[in-house]
Design a protein around this nucleic acid. Structure first.
Length: 552
DNA sequence: GCCGTTTTCGGCCCGACTGTTTTCAGTCG
């Protein structure tokens, strides 16, 4: 897949191995670089060609050399060297909950245990009994962890996490006395996938909140519970953390638990430079709390405006905030229509009317239905849609074709073309010629490359911004159709427009649009480059409306 | 391994919780 993701994965693997070797700071250095690479809007090869690898945050001389090695040979020998020093099963042990590198290393060196199988056998044979640091409870926990290790935990698509999160919030609110409640973590940053949920609550009665949390519907087991925090695992293996804080700490806690890690580390180092200390309870000068009730307060104390959660990755947002040039990110309320709504081929006028009604409730000026074109014939669906009268929202028809070869002018009666094939490396010339052929813009391309930011980011850019629009679709099963935030940022920087869409007329449109907007915000997208944040008449490539407002 | 106009060496976020301790180490987020 993508070069950036490949190198990042290798760096993470190296970090795990260095952990096992007992290294103190190198592992985090490799992980920081890995996170940095994953957020790059551009392919490493292109950055290397310009000789700018060591301008990447977290990449110094040693890591630059390793990236170069990978780009020329396809491998990083240092990884193989480390792998040769350690039993291959050892890393697997550190994946078990509650078992980290220190313990795994002790198993290996003191007991000759080199993997899960050997550990299971050792416990069964009683070889851990009496070993320093391993009481009966700990041995029991490790045995449980080994037994449940077969169910791999995975990250959920944002849309699915959103459904679960809404259920948790509603359930807690109905059964416990709480004031503010917010889901922080990568969920709040609108990451494409979510590994766990961080629920943050203020309440005068933490005990009752923790009780309600512990009896959430769908709970599989409790991992831990203290006076102010608890962790449970839901059926389906999603981990949920709860934290109860005082109202005057809520902003600081929200900031702290929203992350991302690098953003927070950077922020804390700035605080330290200014004689301040920042943690989840507030910003402190000495013992005195100087901020903490709201996030705005926390950022203001450090001299920054509030930074939107979606871009808190230490990818330049702190510098932008310091210089007063944070982008004004697109908002749900910016949208004036949807350009990519799918209907069943035999959809009735009733279905179409209800889709229009939902769009109308959102205040939309237009709805664009995507109609797949068959063998030259205009399908029945297009004829049905045309029989439905609607002045507002206005009905638009998008002719959906599977490949760039068909991406010329849409047939009569259609307003634009949607190409559903992914943008891939090497498709640049085809995209360009398709864009040239069309006299009736715009063309939406509906799928990202999912891991080739360079091609997706540059191809449409080189084709010109006037006619090509990336369609960011958040459907129930397709979280973002291959568009990740790094790619989106690349699009935004090269001036390519995006269209944000909920895809489906079957209800829940608002939630999915919200997520599409969140993903776009993660990519630093402003309303200025969102096609459906403008009237249809002001779309890219369209002739400016004639009249006194027109040029000339 | 990275980083830095107060540093090119000496730092590197920090607090909650657990199990094992008799004052703390390891893990996690």
């Amino acid at each position: 897949m993508g070069t950036n993701a490949d190198v990042a994965a290798i760096f993470r693997e190296i970090a795990d191995l260095l952990d096992l070797l007992g290294e103190r700071f190198k592992p985090e250095a490799y992980r920081r670089a890995a996170r940095s690479l994953e957020g790059l809007p551009e392919d490493l090869r292109l950055i290397a060609q310009r000789g700018e690898l060591d301008a990447i945050p977290g990449v110094g001389e040693a890591l630059r050399q390793k990236i170069d090695e990978y780009l020329t040979t396809g491998a990083i020998p240092y990884l193989a060297k480390l792998q040769a020093e350690l039993p291959p099963g050892l890393v697997t042990l550190t994946r078990l909950p509650g078992l980290g590198p220190k313990t795994a290393r002790r198993f290996w060196l003191e007991l000759g245990i080199v993997g899960p199988t050997e550990l299971t056998e050792a416990i069964a044979a009683g070889r851990l009994n009496g070993v320093k640091g391993f009481g009966p409870r700990k041995i029991e926990l490790i045995r449980d962890a080994l037994a449940s290790a077969s169910t791999p935990s995975h990250r959920l698509p944002l849309a699915e996490a959103d459904r679960i999160a809404q259920g948790i919030v509603a359930s807690l609110r109905s059964r416990a006395p709480l004031d503010a409640v917010e889901i922080a973590g990568s969920f709040r940053r609108c990451r494409e996938t979510v590994g766990d949920l961080d629920v943050l609550v203020t309440s005068n009665e933490p005990e009752k909140v923790l009780d309600a949390f512990n009896s959430l519907p769908g709970k599989a087991r409790q991992l831990m519970r203290g006076p102010t925090k608890a962790t449970i695992v839901l059926e389906g293996e999603l981990q949920v953390d709860l934290r109860v804080v005082a109202p005057e700490e809520f902003g600081a806690a929200l900031q702290y638990f929203t992350g991302g890690k690098d953003h927070n580390v950077h922020l804390r180092s700035i605080a330290r430079d200014r004689g301040l200390r920042i943690n989840e309870y507030g910003v402190f000068r000495g013992e005195e709390r100087v901020a903490g009730r709201t996030e705005e307060e926390v950022y203001a104390t450090l001299g920054f405006p509030w930074i939107p959660p979606e871009i808190r990755e230490d990818h330049g947002e702190i510098e932008a905030a310091a210089q007063g040039r944070l982008p004004h990110l697109v908002e749900l309320g910016s949208l004036r229509g949807d350009l990519h709504v799918h209907l069943a081929p035999d959809a009735s006028t009733t279905v179409i009317r209800s889709a229009l009604a939902e769009a109308s409730a959102l205040g939309f000026e237009y709805v664009g239905f995507a109609v797949p074109l068959g063998e030259g014939a205009v399908p029945e669906l297009a004829r049905t849609i045309r029989t439905v009268p609607s002045e507002r929202p206005r009905i638009l028809l998008g002719a959906e074709v599977p490949s760039w070869e068909g991406a010329s002018d849409p047939p009569d009666g259609f307003d634009y073309t949607i190409v559903t094939s992914p943008i891939e490396a090497g498709s640049s010339s085809r995209v360009r010629s398709a864009a040239k052929k069309s006299s009736r813009p715009p063309i939406l391309f509906a799928h990202g490359s999912g891991g080739a930011p360079a091609s997706a980011g540059r191809t449409p850019g080189s084709a010109g911004r006037s006619q090509l629009i990336a369609s960011i679709v958040v459907g129930p099963d397709a979280p973002s159709r291959g568009w990740d935030s790094a790619t989106l940022r690349g699009l935004a920087e090269s001036g390519v427009e995006v269209a944000l869409s909920a895809d489906s007329p079957d209800g829940g449109q608002l939630d999915r649009l919200r997520l599409a907007v969140g993903l776009a915000r993660r990519g630093w997208t402003t309303a200025a480059t969102v096609t459906n944040a403008r009237p249809w008449s002001a779309r890219p490539g369209s002739k400016p409306p004639a009249g006194r407002d027109g040029p000339g």
